[in-house]
Amino acid sequence: MAKAVSVRGLHKAFGARTVLDGIDLEVEPGEFVALLGRSGCGKSTLLRILAGLDREVRGAARVPGKVSIAFQQPRLLPWRKVWRNIALGLHRPDGRAVALRALQEVRLPGHADAWPLTLSGGEAQRVSLARALVREPDVLLLDEPFGALDALTRLAMHHLVEDLWTRHKPAVLLVTHDVDEALLLADRILVLDEGRIVATHHVDLPRPRRRASVVEQRTRVLADLGVEVEEAA
């Protein structure tokens, strides 16, 4: 089967500053990959390139299928109602019905006719997820979508994303700097540092994962990020 994402020798520089320095990456259809790294390691840049938002690069980045995205900020159109935000750009006559079903799936029924600015951060982010999913993407790009949420909302969102991914099975590329998030959700974790993939971890733990089950691997992933910790047993 064709790869959902294939990247070969990808370089990107902003002026004299190299942001991506030879990235090779392949993602299988339906695979959940987390891109983990500190701020400025190039992970968001990589995602933007895959989304087609940045084309001035050296190397190859191919995403043959349909791409969809959710950002750290929900980026909803404040002047369009929630359901229109989901349905716009779909070009389907049954847009409202599709949007209503998607809202049901992200557990926000009854918010279809709300204005986005009246939603809480978590609700808006769920609308953003619904908007990404109704496009039935082959590749779903998630650019720190939980970064701006409070800890409790973030937990609920982790479950929701895993649930949606299990049901729709797009390939997912999740950009995050949260090790636990990556361990809870991803099949594979790529650690990025200074524009290179410096480590790859396969996470073979059964799902749904609990916090305790990921502790052992956590230490190793953190070590790759240059963080030494003594895990309490």
Binding site: R75, L77, R80, L88, A132, R135
Partner: peptide, 23 residues
């Protein structure tokens, strides 16, 4: 940011103008 999102989400240029830029 809104224009970018609209681009990735498959809005046509016309839709970007009508639903994002003008409002």
């Amino acid at each position: 940011g809104l224009v970018e999102a609209a681009r990735v989400l498959g809005y046509s240029r016309f839709e970007r103008v009508v639903h994002v830029v003008l409002p």
